[in-house]
Design a protein around this nucleic acid. Structure first.
Length: 583
RNA sequence: GCGCCCGUAGCUCAGCAGGAUAGAGCACCAGAUUCCUAAUCUGGGGGCCAUGGGUUCGAAUCCCGUCGGGCGCACCA
């Protein structure tokens, strides 16, 4: 993917600094082979320090055999030649601070206008393919709130990576091969008999009692009549399993659609096994002495009453950092979940340059073994495929501060569909993204829908709505945004531009760290700055966007407002949250 | 017992591949305002970044130990 728009300001100056370093190398004042990956170009924390700050002198001084301030002086002289740089200052231990002409920032504001929905889009990913696997909920029932966070985080991450220049595959792994789907099939059989008029009474212990299987039973009754009512299980189990899984997946897709989530690829574990992928993986691993027949260790930390040593094919995951070797087949010869999952990751790696899995924290214990498997299966040439497991921590549901009780056995879990219907897609998504994923979070129905500035979702959306309403009002009064007189903008306005100009940096940083929540926090900051600017107009009519007797100034301010709105819109698009035009 | 995650203001949380005086919102305190630029605004106090060591020019950030909370620990998925 090529992206030929002008570079955003921060990227531009990173290049300027790089070129200045090149000049120092050419002049012989700096060795040519210094690693520059640690050199940063960023806004100083304290705006009084200037517009841009680089740590280049501090990072490079030691390997260059000089001291930071001396190097900074040389670098400052070099950078001072850029016409956009009005001042250079050396500060603290060796920071080099730059002050830029207002024109440099106004140019960035114009760039936002030109790039529009593409502002912030980056070529960083270089078109490499990243497979993001997320949700992958078991196809035995509807989505519940336990799945929600991973679903939203994975989806936003996928969008973020695409925006940052990757080709992204959004994938869902259907666990349709284990004992649980047999239970599902038996449960469906009960509902099937029920649909044919049999009084089935309470759903037997060990089967899924949920009402959601009733339609599946009715569909089976409509399709097969009473053919399988009294038939032995062997005649209907596989059939009912296929039908029931398909019904559950249709339901899950509908649930996900409520959140705006759509996967590109649904991979079936059953199909994976049917096509012999785990066996191929096993053969390959055995050939490389990475699978052997051995005894499984006894479980740790639990009383193992019925523990007996059994010989099974074990994968040498300890060679790759796991705590013990893991079985890939059960003693009955069937694949373990891990045995199939290992083959599945191998399959994914065939079509992607990097893999990311989004898992719930309750699966944290299995991270090491799957990382080991990917390292083993893709690392034969010494270059294992980049693979990350991102864990999302638990969400506690609250209603007015009181925990919502959930019991799977009693069937009283809170479904995702219910929550989305109650509070809305945008609230669910933004809330799930307003905390770093590796920290636990509370989701309080009452707080999350509150329409006040204390609610970040509302705060950000209100910013966008405010921009829209300002533009509407201006239009009605005969004003339009325009970039002809941007030099009329003053310090307060430029502060807003500086913040908006950070969006491309935020995108790249968030994509690199695989942390979409950073975008949410940035949007909150930008919205805060916009609201603060807006409030200036309360006491000072000359600071309002519309200044009735000054056409040129109004056009420039409206242009600024429009671009802030654009950045908010672009950010919300990554989060999958609607940018409301009015509230 | 072991592994992983977390511990930052009274509360809820940020802190961007170690960087300058650790930030925001709520709550609290003090002012302003009843305007329609709108679900009020402005300012202020408040921190041994759980704790003890280590690494270095520099640590909330990296390493080790301790304490506290969460999740998990056969062939389940």
């Amino acid at each position: 993917m090529t992206f030929s728009a002008p570079r955003p300001l921060f990227a531009e100056f990173a290049a300027v600094i790089d070129a200045a370093l090149d000049a120092l190398v050419a002049a012989g004042t700096l060795p040519g082979d210094l690693p520059r990956h640690a050199v940063t170009t960023e806004p100083p924390r304290d705006p009084a320090h200037g517009d841009l700050s680089t740590n280049a002198a501090m990072v490079l001084a030691k390997p260059a055999g000089t001291n930071p301030r001396a190097l900074a002086t040389l670098l400052a002289a070099e950078l001072g030649r850029d016409p956009r740089v009005v001042a250079t200052e050396i500060a603290g231990p060796g920071f080099l601070n730059l002050r830029l002409t207002p024109g440099a920032w106004l140019g960035e504001l114009r760039l936002i206008g030109q790039a529009g929905a593409d502002y912030g889009r980056s070529a960083m990913g270089g078109g490499s393919v990243v497979n993001v696997e997320y949700v992958s909920a078991n196809p035995t029932g509807p989505m519940h709130m336990g799945h929600c966070r991973g679903a939203v985080v994975g989806d936003a991450l996928a969008t973020l990576l695409a925006f940052a220049g990757h080709r992204v595959i959004r994938e869902y792994y259907i666990n349709d091969a284990g004992g649980q789907v047999d239970v599902l099939a038996r449960s469906a059989h009960v509902r099937y008999r029920e649909a044919l008029g049999e009084a089935v009474g309470a759903i037997p212990e060990g089967l899924y009692p949920g009402d959601y299987l009733i339609p599946a039973g009715q569909a089976l009754a409509a399709e097969f009549g009473d053919r399988y009512v009294a038939a032995p299980e062997s005649e209907w189990l596989a059939l009912f399993r296929t039908r029931a899984v398909a019904a559950m997946m249709a339901m899950i897709r509908d649930d996900l659609a409520l959140l705006g989530i759509h996967h590109d690829v649904f991979s079936s574990e059953a199909e994976l096994q049917a096509t012999g992928k785990p066996a191929l993986a096993e053969a390959w691993l055995r050939a490389h002495d990475l699978v052997y027949d051995g005894l499984l260790e006894a479980p740790k930390g639990k009383v193992a009453e019925d523990w007996e040593p059994v010989e099974m094919p074990l994968f040498r995951s300890t060679r790759f950092g796991d705590d013990q070797d893991r079985p890939i087949r059960k003693s009955d010869g069937n694949w373990t979940y891990f045995g199939a999952d290992l083959a599945y990751h191998f399959q994914k790696a065939e079509t992607a340059d990097a893999l990311v899995d989004i898992w719930g924290a309750d699966h944290a214990g299995t991270v090491k073994r799957i990382r080991a498997a990917v390292a083993a299966l893709t690392g034969a040439e010494g270059h294992p495929k980049p693979f990350e497991v991102k864990l999302v921590q638990m969400v506690q549901l609250l209603r007015d501060g009181v925990p919502v009780k959930m019991s799977k056995r009693a069937g009283t879990f809170v479904t995702l569909a219910d929550v989305v219907r109650e509070v809305g897609k945008d609230v669910v998504r933004f809330t799930m993204l307003s905390r770093k994923p590796d920290a636990q979070m509370d989701f309080d129905f009452a707080k999350v829908v509150e329409a006040s500035k204390d609610n970040p979702v509302f705060y950000v959306q209100y910013c966008h709505a405010r921009v829209c309403s300002t533009l509407r009002k201006a239009s009605a009064e005969g004003f339009a945004p325009g970039a002809d007189a941007l030099d009329r903008l003053g310090d307060e306005e430029l502060a807003l531009v500086r913040l908006a100009a950070q969006f491309p940096r935020v995108i790249e940083g968030a994509a690199q760290a695989r942390e979409p929540h950073r975008v949410a926090f940035y949007l909150y900051d930008l919205a805060g700055a916009f609201h603060a600017y807006w409030n200036l107009g309360n006491d000072r009519p000359d600071k309002r966007f519309i200044v009735a007797d000054d056409q040129a100034l109004t056009a420039a301010r409206l242009f600024l407002a429009a671009q802030v709105g654009q950045v908010i819109r672009n950010g919300l698009a990554i989060l999958g949250v609607a940018a409301a035009e009015e509230l």
